[in-house]
Structure formats: structure tokens, C-alpha cells
């Protein structure tokens, strides 16, 4: 009871502070200087239609490299924590009903379509909404569908690790190419920026976002696979 009271009082106090913030908030009428720079120079400098993509991949590319590293650490620690509990082959199948004909056929038909959608999303990241993180999540949801249709399915962990490692190394290598041939680390202009709005444009942005998509997809898939392959304890 004391706990509920204390939590309630804390929440009310924070609510008052937040209410003051909301009531005193004045929205900007114009873009601030940073946003104005991005709005005016993205098309000219980088040739990317989607400004959010340009910021994520190039202007603040080092942040994104850090983000992918954090995600890799999270996936690695999940694998480390769950490793002792991992059961023998087919442990997840115990007690689960066998997948029906409909489920098996449906997942076999849908998995390639989902993979193609994910690849489309991250290859077009510089033109339309979407990009490596969204596309990677869609790739991982294909793995999720396979796991849902057949809980005893085992992924080739070595393949997932290889995809993740190779794309991670290639991401840093592309960044170093930018350092060597263009303005700085992760600069996309060592490749020609091409015609504005074409698929093969915006320099290295599609290349980098494809690598990010593969890496993020492999990381999410390994988290999902690790969580399902733990031994059932009841």
C-alpha cells in the first residue's frame, strides 16, 4: 500500500512538471539553423531524396555505426546469457502440436515474398520512407514466420554470424573508403551522386543502408533464434 502511495505521489509530481512543459511549449514557426542546413543542402551535397536517410547514414553516420554496435552487443549478450539453457536438437518442439499443412505451405510461400519486401525497403531507403533498420526488421520477421510455423526449426547460426560479420566489416570499410577518397569517414561521395531521384544515386548511401539492413536483420534473427532455442523449463 505504501508502495502504491509513493509511486502515485511521484507520478503526480512528474505529471505537474510535464504539464508545465506542455502548457508552456511554443512551436517554432521556422526551421532552426541545423534543420535549415539539412533542408537546403541535402539534395545539392548528397543527392538523397529522403533527408532522414541522409542524416542517419551520412551527416550523423558515426552515430549509426555506434547504434549498430550497441545492437550487436545486445544480441551477443542475449546469446551469452541464454547459452547455458540451450536445449538439445528439437527441444522447442516438445509439447507443441506439429505444424499443419496450411501453415507449412503458407510459410514456404510467404517467406521469399517477405524477404523481397525487406530488400526493397532498404535498397530504396534514399528515395522513399524506410531504410536499413526497417528492412532489417522485415527480414527478421521472415525468420519469425519460419519459427512460428515450425517451433523446432534450427537456424544455421554460422550463416547468420557470417552475414553479420561480413556486413559489419564492409560497413567500416566503406566508411574508410569515404575517408580516403572523399571528405571524411562515412562520406558517401566517393561514388558519383548520379541523377537525383534514380535508384543508383546518392553515392554510397544505398550501399551503406544495404549493409546496415543485412546486419540488423541478422542481429534481430539471432536474438529471436536464441530466445526460442532455450530449453523449456516447467
Amino acid at each position: 500500500m505504501v508502495r502504491h502511495l509513493a509511486a502515485g505521489l511521484l507520478t503526480i509530481g512528474l505529471a505537474l512538471a510535464f504539464a508545465a512543459l506542455v502548457l508552456g511549449y511554443q512551436p517554432d514557426a521556422e526551421l532552426n539553423r541545423t534543420a535549415l542546413y539539412y533542408a537546403e543542402n541535402t539534395a545539392k551535397d548528397l543527392g538523397s531524396q529522403n533527408i532522414v536517410t541522409a542524416i542517419v547514414v551520412t551527416y550523423r553516420g558515426l552515430d549509426t555505426l555506434g547504434e549498430v554496435t550497441v545492437l550487436f552487443l545486445a544480441a551477443a549478450i542475449v546469446g551469452l546469457i541464454l547459452a547455458p539453457g540451450r536445449g538439445a536438437e528439437g527441444a522447442g518442439r516438445r509439447g507443441a502440436p506439429p505444424p499443419g499443412e496450411l501453415l507449412t505451405t503458407g510459410s514456404r510461400m510467404l517467406t521469399p515474398l517477405i524477404l523481397i519486401t525487406g530488400i526493397y525497403v532498404f535498397v530504396n531507403g534514399h528515395l522513399t520512407p524506410g531504410g536499413g533498420f526497417q528492412g532489417g526488421a522485415i527480414l527478421a520477421s521472415a525468420a519469425l514466420l519460419v519459427l512460428l510455423a515450425d517451433p523446432g526449426h534450427r537456424f544455421a547460426h554460422r550463416t547468420i554470424e557470417t552475414i553479420e560479420g561480413v556486413s559489419g566489416v564492409a560497413y567500416v570499410a566503406v566508411g574508410l573508403l569515404g575517408l580516403a577518397f572523399a571528405g571524411g569517414f562515412l562520406d558517401n561521395r566517393f561514388l558519383p551522386t548520379g541523377r537525383f531521384g534514380a535508384l543508383l544515386s546518392a553515392g554510397a548511401i544505398p550501399v551503406i543502408y544495404t549493409l546496415i539492413g543485412l546486419k540488423v536483420g541478422a542481429e534481430f534473427a539471432s536474438i529471436l533464434a536464441n530466445l526460442t532455442e532455450t530449453e523449456e523449463r516447467r
Partner: peptide, 12 residues
């Protein structure tokens, strides 16, 4: 962009 990410990752 944020809407796609939230739908795929946050809720899925």
C-alpha cells in the same frame, strides 16, 4: 520513416 520503424519493430 518513424512510423515504419515503430510498426515493424515496436509493435511487431
Amino acid at each position: 520513416d518513424v512510423a515504419m520503424t515503430e510498426a515493424a519493430i515496436g509493435s511487431g
